[in-house]
Design a protein around this nucleic acid. Structure first.
Lengths: 275, 275
DNA sequence: ACCATCGGTTCATTAGACGAACCAAATCCC
DNA sequence: GGGATTTGGTTCGTCTAATGAACCGATGGT
């Protein structure tokens, strides 16, 4: 029934020639614990399609190193402090995140709306850093949250992606979230080229009806897109004037951030006078 | 020379009976990358006392899973996005951290000083969550930063630790950071019992001369100490009156937090009328 | 009081992790 | 510039050690 993890070969699970299985399996376990906290040994081994002995030993090893911890009442596992510290160190080491923080801060404080930095991961967009305002009604997007590439701010990542990959993504089935979700390939392609032309993108309720977001691309060396800066707000707080203002700030921030990390925007978006 | 990692047997490196070495070694590598970003293959394998082949394969597996990433220019490794996301999930899963966040927030906003949640890890205190004010002069203590247990806020963790462990820690050598650092065992023990009596602790420049911190313990089930809430401020901003106010808030927050996570303070600190 | 399932343990087998040896390409270093 | 040392990366055979299957006592639902 439950297809075993080790034999998956198609989707993301292609393991390079240099994979250490013992380690790769253990990472699967770690990720499983991350995604499903508070499962017991049996549940974990079942979901992994692996023997209990293996899972048990891997768990204990991870536990010894503090990456997972075992809650005593009913022997249930979740991530431990070492995972927390690892994340803190990662956020300090990853250039893009580190460089983006002051920009997120500044944008957030200026607009008092949720600001995110999102990057491409597989066929999705992941939030890797954010700033959230301290108000009752706000857009909530925790670090780690994922969205597809064909809706909302993901479109910016899609728009600037290498042709081949983009075509592949476009060939995948799309799910409708709201009335505004772009499911038609033609319309989507048109928007993507619009985004490339404008150098920014706006989503009006594509993922969530009452939500508007404004996003601008960040580029690295060789004009490769490395992330998007996104401001998300309740539609009620985003009239046209305010949207324009938001776009100005986001685009400026994205341009600056691109410069900071030593990247360069593709030639097509270099407007007259900007050089 | 460089003693190999696998053979360490004393300090923290005792590997339980159920350790899978392949995984344990790989975790050592991951931690090494976390602590020394931007090292090359040879450096890493040397620091680990392991062959290049092994390290290379482990690195590639970690890279496939996004836990580390390889910067192209000179093939140098650092933590990857998966580590970042793991940390985000950990912080959502670890009850103490999750429950503490609103308290950190409230304390920070009320006092406009750095607030930290620290827990015990090995023989040190580690910061696992914090709130930092947006002012020019502030105490900077990133998540993951470590301090010994005999100085500053670590003393609270030490004070409420089980006798045996406490004795062990006290038997270790102590390093003097400032004039205020407690190196004398007698004085230190006196302070520890003072802390247990008061239910809070104050550090006046024990770690850093110009720095005052006020800290209160957080207890879990069975009155076991699970963390400390710490407010740190430049001494110049902390006169006696303000210190008293700070202590009131920190103690109240720690008490509330203890209640929220279902813990109970030890009987000795239950003041008359509080029950 | 039953049965199902739990976390944990043991052991023999053989998969697969690893060390040693070996490359080609950079980088030193006079 | 060119010999000497590095570097990152690769290959292969050996023997370690990771694993699956089977087992066990404890727990808990009914």
């Amino acid at each position: 029934m439950a297809k075993t993890v080790e034999e998956s070969e198609d989707d993301t699970g292609k393991q390079g020639a240099y994979t250490v299985q013992a380690l790769d399996n253990a990472i699967s376990l770690l990720m499983l614990v991350a995604d499903n906290p508070d499962l017991g040994l049996s549940d974990l081994s079942r979901k992994l399609g692996a023997g209990k002995a293996r899972v048990y030993r891997q768990l204990k090893t991870l536990e010894d190193r503090g990456l997972v911890s075992c809650s005593e009442p009913h022997r249930t596992y979740r991530l431990g402090y070492a995972a927390l510290l690892l994340g803190a160190k990662a956020s300090a080491q990853i250039d893009l995140v580190q460089s983006a923080k002051p920009f997120l801060d500044r944008l957030g404080k200026a607009l008092q709306e949720t600001v995110q930095l999102r990057v491409l991961d597989g066929q999705e967009s992941v939030c890797v850093a954010n700033w959230v305002p301290d108000r009752d009604l706000r857009v909530q997007t925790p670090v780690g949250s994922r969205t597809p590439l064909y809706a909302g701010s993901g479109k910016i990542l899609l728009a600037y992606m290498p042709e081949a990959e983009q075509a592949h993504i476009l060939s995948l089935p799309r799910k409708r979230f709201t009335d505004g979700t772009m499911v038609d390939e033609g319309a989507l392609k048109a928007i993507l080229s619009q985004i490339r032309h404008d150098g920014y993108g706006v989503s009006r309720g594509e993922m969530e009806a009452a939500l508007i977001s404004a996003a601008a691309p960040i580029f690295g060396q060789g004009s490769r897109i490395v992330g998007v800066l996104v401001v998300g707000a309740p539609a009620t707080r985003m009239d046209n004037e305010r949207l324009q203002h938001t776009l100005d700030l986001v685009c400026a921030a994205a341009r600056e951030l691109t410069a900071v990390i030593g990247g360069s925007p593709p030639s097509s978006v270099v407007r007259p006078g900007s050089f």
